[in-house]
Design a protein around this nucleic acid. Structure first.
Length: 227
DNA sequence: TTCCAGGCAATAC
DNA sequence: GTATTGCATGGA
């Protein structure tokens, strides 16, 4: 069933090429799964993952462009900014006081890594990094096979009858990973599928699972035998 | 006007 | 462990 949903979404929307970088025209890698290409892109994924918490990505792009204009799209660049200037730059992404604190704390963690891949449990110790943000950073920033679950994922699976309202983050993540791991043996293909799957869910859900009643017009409901 | 945004942490039971 | 609330604001 999980595979079937993926096939249908991919057929409908095509490859998404996530992560969506700030400047899509220059950096958006449709069908190019070599991202991130450098430390700058890794950091941009981390930054975006925190900024997008409970916010639309278009507002995140505004914040990233503000930072870029301040030559502050790097850890040190942000640290060098006046804190109020930094808050103002990320204001379009909302919760700017909280997120400024989160990002400054994350930067210290990021610098200590010295390029190493962070452990998930260590990421979760950073203030402001919860399960979804950790998986977002690992999946898109460090190419680790960690499925990213979000509100859309739960909404969609709930509507399709594959989970109950009680399902927690780790339950949903396990459901997705178990199904995909079983059907996809190639490690790289599995990673790409995780990256594409989440992106496709977002693409689909922005249309059919943003407004109530959730799922109205969703073609997956007709294509799949409801359990 | 109301509802919602690709969550997380703190607090209260 | 689960439920609730504050964080902030623009856009549909």
């Amino acid at each position: 069933m999980i595979e079937k949903i993926y096939t249908l979404l991919y057929k409908a929307y095509g490859p998404q090429g996530w992560w969506p970088f700030m400047n899509h025209e220059d950096f958006y890698h449709i069908s190019d799964y070599s991202i991130p290409r450098n430390k700058g892109e890794v950091f941009e994924v981390c930054l975006g993952s925190i900024l997008t918490q409970n916010t639309t990505f278009t507002s995140v792009v505004k914040s990233l462009k503000n930072l870029d204009a301040l030559h502050a799209l790097t850890p040190q660049g942000i640290k060098n900014l006046d804190v109020e200037t930094f808050k103002l730059a990320i204001k379009p992404s909302d919760y700017h006081n909280q997120k400024a604190k989160y990002i400054l704390g994350f930067i210290d963690f990021f610098l200590e890594l010295q390029g190493a891949i962070p452990k998930r449990e260590k990421l979760l110790e950073v203030l402001g990094i919860g399960e979804e943000t950790a998986d977002s950073i690992l999946l898109y920033g460090y190419r680790q096979t960690e499925f990213k679950v979000d509100a859309y994922t739960k909404r969609l699976l709930l509507e399709l009858g594959l989970i109950t309202q009680k399902a927690k983050y780790k339950d949903i993540k396990k459901l997705m990973q178990d199904a995909l791991e079983e059907s996809i043996e190639d490690k790289k293909e599995l990673l790409i599928t995780y990256q594409e799957y989440h992106a496709l869910i977002v693409q689909h859900s922005k249309r059919f699972y943003s407004k109530k009643p959730y799922g109205a017009g969703c073609f997956l409901k007709d294509a799949l035998p409801l359990t």
